[in-house]
Write a protein that binds this DNA or RNA. Structure first.
Lengths: 200, 200
DNA sequence: CGTTGCATGTAAGGTGTTACATGATTAC
DNA sequence: GTAATCATGTAACACCTTACATGCAACG
């Protein structure tokens, strides 16, 4: 038996939550969710609230986190979680481990645009333009996260990763704009429709 | 009753598969998987093979695709799928529909780098450098997909979207390199360890 | 005194994966 | 003839979400 206790075969999500718990002394499940929304979301994923609760319960079972406050018996009372030495060791081991896991970009607007030949060029333009606006707002959110993190010590890695994520989302905006420029060149007869009267 | 037959509440994945079937007259499940690996993977996702089979069966149930070849009764014989008019209408409707669904970048290397403070700076450097190499290979794959698609007519949208995806993955490489440069600046004492002898 | 934010969960169900089993066809 | 590729699925399970239920605290 090796000494990696309960740390076997956890999904990346579990390590993400464990990772969040490394930045503060203790957090409620609710707090973890807020951290995920503010930071993790931009380069990994934002778990559902209920998922965070379930994941923390599992991590507690495995001894990777421990809770202060109400015991499991009393429902609906505040519970504050803290990472254990075992949890810290597990997440550190995971973080140092090289991976072949490919980066996934799940981009439902790009997927729609990919099917552009099925719809009016104008509809494609609309959804991509909307996406550009949304992606710009996302970049502003990242900037706010960076601004907050920069003021804190011991956040140099998170800040560096948020900057990395920022570049990716900037490229998304640039790519979307280049796509729109392409669209204008390849469908000039359709796109100006809003300005010019329809041909008889 | 509206006439949107069996097209209710399908996940984006189902539309992705339906979309692939719009590009060719007919395809086997195996072919669909290959298309997904070559194209979809770079801006959306690559489904497991078994998933493609299950999804095609569901789409057939709903009348959005139809199969030629062996009937459902005979197992393990070749089945070729084709999109139906209803399927084409459903995917066209979906593609034109604006969405607020945020783009997800699921980047397990960035997640590890985010936790850099838990491990040796050298370990962080190694996994990020490895990722850069992998991301560069990914860009080459995208280039090959673009080269193939460019020779085909009616692939202008897929080509434009692949270029968009290419920008995103290029930004990933640039972001990773900037991260590494940051790392050298903030941890100069640790990083050159490989070249210089350890201090006594 | 009502709304917003904090706070915790359960139940049910859909999505997606891995592991496994099986066989036909093509190319060397 | 045998290896690789084509080709099809099932079973079991893990992951994650939505919908729902509950209640306290602070602010206006």
């Amino acid at each position: 038996m090796s000494d990696d206790a309960g740390a076997r075969d956890l999904p990346a999500t579990a390590y993400a939550i464990l990772g969040i718990l490394c930045f503060e002394r203790e957090l409620t499940a609710y707090d973890v969710k807020k951290w995920a929304d503010a930071s993790l979301r931009h380069f990994y994923w934002a778990p559902a609230t209920s998922h965070v609760y379930r994941e923390l319960a599992r991590l507690e079972d495995r001894g990777l986190v421990e809770a202060r406050g109400a015991s499991t018996a009393e429902p609906r009372t505040k519970r504050v979680y803290r990472i254990t030495p075992g949890g810290r060791a597990a997440v550190a081991r995971w973080a140092a481990e090289p991976t072949e896991e490919p980066t996934v970009v799940k981009h439902s607007v790009a997927l729609r645009a990919w099917l552009g030949h099925l719809v009016l060029a104008d509809d494609v333009r609309i959804i991509v333009e909307q996406h550009v606006a949304q992606a710009r707002r996302r970049i502003e959110e990242i900037d706010r996260s960076i601004a907050v993190a920069e003021t804190l010590p011991a956040m140099t890695y998170p800040v560096a990763v948020l900057r990395w994520a920022r570049r990716i989302h900037e490229a998304d905006v640039e790519g979307a704009e280049a796509f729109l420029a392409d669209l204008v060149r390849s469908a000039p007869a359709i796109l100006p429709a809003a300005d010019s009267p329809p041909a008889p």
